[in-house]
Design a protein around this nucleic acid. Structure first.
Lengths: 355, 355
DNA sequence: CTGGTTTTTGAAAGCGCTTACAATTTGATG
DNA sequence: CATCAAATTGTAAGCGCTTTCAAAAACCAG
């Protein structure tokens, strides 16, 4: 039974036919065994599996998916990778995907800044079965295209108020509301706010939450205390700095729309000689890993980032399974995480909370 | 010419045959046009391209790579994603890959903690043309397997002292040497050192560089000033804290093996009531994005992370092009980046450098 | 045993593309 | 205009797998 006619150089990888031959069945049977088809005799199944093991056979993905099977790959479009935000979401995505035995084809949204639609086309046309978009800055024409092809996708922390898309995000409005009320309860009345990029939905929601809470707490909304950032640390630093130099009297608290901005604000405050939280309280949003490692530890509104990733994957897989499933929107609850960066405004000095 | 027999539900995607038919040539010709084959008549090429455009045709990757073409995909194995380190390298990888029109299949190394070899098998067998491994913790059996298959791969910031592998890293020894000497020149003689995981090559090299510099500066190497970390911020915090509580007299400087550890050390120092850099200097390694945004801005040894990613990609692509190309090792130069976290030990007080 | 079911398998037709190899055109030369 | 080489295009054989469809085996009641 000598089927070895490999080239001398490199040993050929075993194909399904090799396995079939070696276990004395047809390739169809091997295929059935491998895809968990029900009606295969137990002994045959065992024999095939043994051969697979022995030959170290691994199915060729391209062939499999070409032939109509699944590629077991989903696409993931991310805006960047240099801070923990996206990474944390990806952690959740990865975990859930591993469970379902899927792999990830990674796309960075800045790659083809010009011909974006072509890009998405390529994604949807490639071997991915579905697409996950994290905080996409993509124009909605993108999504229209995907929807047009009935291609499964889920938005995570989405930008657009796109209808008809499945999306997972957090309760941005409520989170911001609570954070603001928390500051108010600590006695703060001059609460500055650093927004995110206002092109982005979450940023707007957080801003609304902030304002609503002020109103409910009988604190006037003062526009000069609201400055526009873009979720970047550096920008957070800059706008906070200029805010602190410009406004008089100083705010006693700064609410930054995300942790990165909050870090920037912390630096700005310190550079202005303000102690945190003694002279000024700072609160963030997201609770990225670094939040608990800056000094002082940042009080922030936690977004369940990992969980968001997981939920998104589940939704996507369901959609892949049943393409007719209507779009779903899920907003996961945020949670105020009290650490050390906020102090009471009544008890100024050093009696701020620690935990 | 009615070839439309699509199911009513979803519009079928155009295939190469559709394009061929629509432009009155054979699919072989279309294929030639698309793969840039030389001997195609200009007018034909134009006609085909026009049709491609019109039909919005995008080649099916699976089919293409099955048929022996390239998949234009490489695998990327990363240890984690929640700090900027890996992300920054990926930025470089992505940029270079985009240039060559490749995509990335992302693998996280923690996914199949048990059957790792199977995992790598699957990678090498899948549709990737090559593999990039960032700071892999993989046992060398992994690599043996890859090498056995003559599968192209490049290690970035590698763990093992594996021979016969292409690897890209930075001049860890020299970087650590310089940083230490810098501290010495500032007048420090009690310089503590927080290592990385000593299972990792870079950590060992940095430790060696530190020690060598001490020797060259006539400073005795004192083991009690060397504590073992693992490149994590939290661990950096813990070991630095216990160091500061244990050692007397206190070190006047801490050299942490990476920025994350340095951030941890900064927190620990502050909690011990030490001012940075007035009471204690802290220096890191890596220069991840956050380094310039912590307070005070971290003086550190810059690793050209993006560039490392780019170089690795170039090497990998070369290897894919010419599989017989022998492994290459490249160490990119590190560079001391002086910011605000180190002060002179002679001029204590507030005359530390700023830039 | 026999006829009818139910299980289990195999044969063969693609999936969409690349790539020899062969056929056809075109062009240049004598 | 015939001839030969070069340029251009078409034909057809897979790549490795899934999946009908139908045949072969196995099983059961009568």
């Amino acid at each position: 039974m000598n089927n070895e006619r490999n080239s001398p150089k490199e040993k050929q990888r075993a194909t399904i036919d090799d396995v079939a031959r070696a276990s004395g069945v047809s390739n169809a049977t091997v295929s059935r065994v491998l895809s968990g088809y029900e009606f295969v005799k137990e002994t045959t199944r065992a024999r095939v599996l043994e051969t697979v093991e022995r030959l170290g056979y691994v199915a060729n993905l391209q062939a499999r998916s070409l032939a109509g099977g699944r590629s077991q790959i989903i696409g993931l479009l991310v805006p960047n990778l240099d801070n923990g935000y996206v990474g944390t979401i990806m952690q959740g995505i990865d975990r859930e995907l591993a469970r379902a035995n899927y792999d990830v084809l990674l796309y960075t949204s800045h790659r083809h800044p010009s011909k974006e639609s072509f890009y998405v086309d390529a994604i949807a046309n490639g071997l991915t079965e579905g697409l996950l978009l994290i905080a996409p800055l993509v124009p909605s024409t993108y999504l229209d295209a995907l929807r047009g092809q009935n291609f499964p996708y889920v938005l995570i922390d989405q930008t657009d108020a796109t209808e008809n898309s499945s999306v997972v995000d957090a309760t941005n409005y409520q989170g911001a509301y609570e954070a603001t009320r928390y500051l108010s309860q600590l006695g703060h009345a001059r609460i500055a706010f650093v927004t995110g990029s206002l092109a982005v939905r979450s940023a707007i929601d957080r801003l609304h939450g902030y304002k609503a809470a002020l109103v409910d707490c009988d604190i006037p909304v003062r526009e000069e205390l609201i400055v526009e950032g873009d979720y970047q640390q550096e920008t957070g630093y800059e706008v906070a700095k200029s805010l602190l130099q410009r406004v008089n009297p100083l705010p006693t608290a700064i609410f930054a729309s995300n942790d990165l901005s909050a870090f920037g604000a912390m630096d700005a405050a310190r550079e202005c000689g303000l102690r945190i939280p003694d002279d000024i309280s700072i609160i963030g949003f997201d609770d990225i890993p670094q939040a608990s490692f800056v000094y002082p530890k940042l009080t922030t509104v936690r977004q369940p980032l990992e969980q968001m990733g997981q939920v998104a994957v589940k939704m996507l897989l369901e959609q892949i399974e049943d393409q007719s499933r209507p779009p779903q929107r899920v907003a996961l609850a945020t949670q105020l995480v009290i650490r050390d960066s906020c102090g009471s405004h009544h008890l100024r000095g050093n009696e701020h909370e620690k935990n």
